[in-house]
């Protein structure tokens, strides 16, 4: 006899004898997807974005990311925006899998719309967006089905600037300078040197220069990067994501370095 009430009153299955006590029959599995075997989970990122950088400065925060989405080592899409405004207080920057990022964009847009539709005038603070993303990312990693990203969330609310990190494991932290991927190794030391202890005095022009120079350094050393990037600025007045900035690059120095430039012999 099947003692589980949820199994009662369902279509009978001749393959099993529900009224036998031994051997114990296999209980029918309800609510399981017929095609469960065919459902795939993200086991690796496919189309990827590289580093995102972010710093605090006098008027708020700034974030930078190039516009490349790579397919392995192929520079597949060269004009993808990886910085996304969430409401009027927050910007989200994504590295890692671009399809997972677009899924998150959709989710956040819906969330912002719902909040706007409520009509109570409430808007999400950057801290709240960060917390929300942290919960989503942690929940997905706990289902062993992660969203393969490292995300930076930045913004300003009530005169307080916020910068936070979330990744595919649900790991979170805050700091006045943040970077994902290669940027954490190459650009972060430069950002820290320029920004730490000067968060409240650093001028906009200087902040922009620091990020631009860091993006230049990254372009020279990160093989999955592009010399075309955007800078997002969040201040008390709102989010401003720049048009793509193209850096002019100089490779003449490489000629003199064996193993770097084209070798003539």
């Amino acid at each position: 006899m099947d003692h589980f009430p949820t199994s009662w009153g369902r279509p009978r299955n001749d393959a099993v004898d529900n009224f036998n006590t031994y051997p114990l029959h296999q209980r029918a599995q309800h609510g399981k997807d017929t095609f469960a075997e065919g459902v795939q989970r993200t086991q690796q990122p496919i189309v990827t974005g590289t580093s995102v950088l972010a710093i605090k400065y006098k008027d708020g925060i700034m974030m930078a990311a190039d516009t490349l989405a790579s397919y392995g080592s192929l520079a597949r899409f060269k004009s993808v925006q990886r910085l996304h405004a969430v409401g009027r207080t927050t910007v989200l920057g994504a590295s890692g899998d671009m399809s997972d990022f677009q899924y998150l964009q959709g989710m956040l847009d819906e969330l912002v719309t719902d909040e706007f539709t409520a009509g109570d005038g409430n808007e999400f603070a950057p801290q709240e967006v960060h917390e929300y993303l942290a919960r989503v990312m942690y929940a997905r990693r706990s289902k062993m089905n992660p969203l393969w990203n490292a995300l930076l969330v930045g913004g300003v609310r009530d005169g307080k600037s916020f910068l936070g990190y979330v990744d595919l494991l649900g790991t979170t932290y805050q700091a006045s300078t943040l970077a994902t991927g290669y940027g954490a190794h190459i650009a972060l030391p430069l950002l820290r040197q320029a920004v730490e202890t000067r968060e409240d005095t650093l001028a906009e022009e200087e902040a922009k220069r620091v990020l631009t120079e860091s993006m230049r350094v990254l372009f020279y050393r990160d093989a999955r990067s592009l010399n075309k990037f955007q800078i997002a600025k969040v201040t008390e007045t709102g989010v401003d994501i720049s048009e793509p900035i193209v850096l002019d690059t100089h490779w003449s120095f490489a000629e003199g370095i064996r193993g770097y430039g084209a070798q003539t012999q």
Binding site: R41, T42, Q43, Q44, R141, S142, M144, P146, L169, T171
Partner: peptide, 9 residues
């Protein structure tokens, strides 16, 4: 390759 849900901080 298996997704590793843990790290050490």
């Amino acid at each position: 390759r298996q997704f590793n849900p843990y790290t050490e901080n």
